[in-house]
């Protein structure tokens, strides 16, 4: 087959694919209506869903302390015996901000922002720092070599490194010395149809749902009231949005 022929064939196949997709939209529009629910265990995650979180900072009673405690309890971090302050695991941190002009002060929980174009995924030399099809950014510790490039790359300082041998980890959250870790949006709970632990710890201030579904609570809230990204100037399209910052 000449180059021109193969070009024509590819072009025509492309047209065919586009027209079938269009047909699918017109014939069965209901197919694209989605609800946030647990996926069957044997089914792979799909890019039709993009998980996200909305944090209303004004409604957080304690600036996120309850979220941090719930995260520690869920994933079993925070009681590392031999690590110093600079080495401690920090899946989620309470950041207090003060506006100098007015003196207005508030706190917000900052964790992995689950970027759409995540810098940590870009720089990882082994592919351990990964984004799942449903938008959850996490570390595949099976292939993590502990080089910590992702920690350098993350503009949110969301990642930490495990410096010591651990035992008795939580079954849903394997953690081990020599690997990097961060918030994984409670991927084990999300796959089971539950909210992330922090969202359930501050239900009055946090919302979890599918950003791709215009009918989900989170999408409706974002559409009506908007949500701010931290460091929106970086254009990372984060999955975690805030109100009141």
């Amino acid at each position: 087959m000449s180059n021109i022929d193969s070009y024509r064939r590819n072009f025509l196949t492309g047209i065919g694919a586009v027209s079938t997709m269009a047909a699918a939209v017109t014939i069965a529009p209901g197919v694209f209506l989605r609800e946030v629910q647990a996926k069957p265990a044997e089914k792979a995650v799909s890019s039709k869903v993009r998980w996200g979180m909305l944090v209303d900072v004004n409604k957080l009673k304690d600036g996120g302390d309850a979220c941090i405690e719930a995260c520690k309890k869920e994933h079993g971090w925070g009681d590392e015996e031999h690590s110093n302050n600079k080495q401690d695991a920090q899946w989620i941190r309470k950041v207090t901000v003060k506006e100098k002009l007015t003196g207005h002060e508030f706190s917000l929980p900052v964790m992995c922002q689950h970027c759409d174009t995540a810098p940590c995924v870009d720089v990882c030399p082994t592919g351990a720092s990964m984004k799942r099809a449903d938008g959850i950014v996490q570390v595949n510790k099976h292939v993590c070599i502990g080089c910590r490039y992702c920690m350098m790359a993350c503009p949110y300082k969301a990642r930490s490194f495990i410096h010591e041998t651990l035992t008795d980890q939580k079954p849903g959250t394997p953690r081990g010395k020599g690997t990097v870790e961060s918030c994984n949006m409670c991927v084990n709970r999300v796959d089971a149809g539950l909210n992330p632990a922090c969202v359930d710890a501050a239900p009055e201030a946090m919302l979890f749902g599918d950003l791709n579904d215009p009918e989900s609570k989170i999408s409706k809230a974002l559409k009506e009231f908007g949500g701010t990204q931290i460091r929106a100037d970086l254009g990372l399209n984060t999955g975690i949005r805030y109100q009141g910052i």
Binding site: A70, K73, E74, K141, T165, L166, D168, Q169, K170, P171, G172, P174, R175, G176, K177, T179, N188, R189, A197, D200, A201
Partner: peptide, 16 residues
């Protein structure tokens, strides 16, 4: 078992 727990743990104790 450097990362995974090596014995069964009750689910109610495991998570939130």
């Amino acid at each position: 078992f450097k990362c995974h727990v090596d014995h069964p743990v009750d689910d109610d104790k495991a998570g939130v």
